[in-house]
């Protein structure tokens, strides 16, 4: 296992009013991975990102980035990080070229017009480089914020709800961009409540609810561990009711009485499918077709949040 690039230990954040937004967070993030912080609104996702990036001060605990402490060695840690905020906060009367160049200067990087050009091209804003930001669409502003975050060539990119309120096409463009960044060795931490986004992009998922990380796992392992599978049987004849001889099985009958749905644990050693088939044969229930479906990350997430 490589050394984590971000390491969070016993992190707590309590705001002045007494509200505890983060509770004893422990998390390691590894170089080159894409990790999704998944949680409902108000779960603490943005507070966690803001604390790592230095916008919030931790109440207790430590965060190290690239081996440096985010409070003591803030110059080193912030130089490694690019942040794309959730809100579309831009300097309306500036141009993309000026604002991205400004960002690079803030992060103590020498002028590099060729690099700024490549970043603006990457986010498809090169044609708009001299337009006033106020004239750009919401999607363009979102991409501009990504360009600003990339202006100083960060090793870690935080994307706070990167596709909130953008259309499907743009969302897919953004996913492609994130994958390209990862190919270039950038570690990506994204917060989202779009499960589809986490499912599409993330290597690992951390679920955060009420300021606590309730679970961190590989996306695939998480889906396997908590995911349920369904066996759907298309019946030859409609069934009036579930046969009384099948009480041991988690069975449901569809509303049109033409499908029998059997839910089982995908990670279980014994799925019960063979026994179910035998029982159906004994009952004389015939079917034309069968297929399986796996529960999505969304269903797993709902389950986890409900448990929390």
């Amino acid at each position: 296992m490589p050394e984590p690039i971000v390491s969070i230990r016993d992190l707590n954040k309590t705001y002045k009013g007494g509200y505890q937004a983060l509770k004893n967070i422990n998390l390691d993030i590894y170089p080159g991975e894409i990790i999704a912080l998944l949680g409902p609104n108000g779960a603490g996702k943005t507070t966690l990102i803001s604390t790592i990036c230095g916008i919030n001060q931790p109440t207790s605990g430590t965060v190290t980035v690239g081996g440096y402490d985010t409070v003591r060695d803030y110059r080193e840690t912030r130089s490694l990080i690019g942040l794309v905020p959730q809100e579309l906060t831009t300097d309306s009367f500036e141009t993309p070229w000026v604002t991205v160049s400004f960002s690079r200067g803030l992060f103590n990087k020498p002028k590099d017009p060729a690099y700024i050009e490549s970043v603006l091209k990457d986010v498809a804003l090169w044609e708009k480089k001299d337009n006033k930001i106020i004239t750009l669409s919401g999607g363009m502003k979102r991409r501009l914020l990504i360009a600003k975050a990339l202006s100083h060539e960060p090793r870690i990119l935080f994307l706070d709800e990167p596709t909130a309120g953008v259309d499907v096409e743009l969302r897919r463009d953004m996913w492609r961009l994130v994958h390209r960044l990862r190919e270039n060795g950038v570690t990506v931490i994204l917060t989202t409540h779009y499960i589809e986004e986490a499912e599409e992009m993330a290597d690992r998922v951390a679920v955060i609810a009420n300021g606590e990380i309730t679970l961190v796992d590989e996306k695939q392992a998480l889906m396997q561990k908590l995911g349920k599978k369904q066996l759907i049987l298309d019946l030859s004849q409609p069934l009036e009711a579930l046969p009384e001889s099948l009480p041991d099985f988690d069975l449901k009958l569809s509303e049109d009485n033409l499908q029998l749905i059997y839910t089982f644990e995908s990670q279980g050693e014994r799925t019960g499918i063979t026994r179910l088939m035998e029982a159906l044969r004994d009952e004389g229930i015939q079917f034309n077709d069968l297929r399986t479906a796996q529960s999505s990350l969304e269903e797993i997430f709902v389950q986890l949040v409900e448990e929390a």
Binding site: C53, G54, L83, D91, S92, F107, N108
Partner: peptide
Amino acid sequence: FTGTIYELMSAPVS
């Protein structure tokens, strides 16, 4: 007011 202060606060700027 506009929220762009986030950049200054997260930059290596004292």
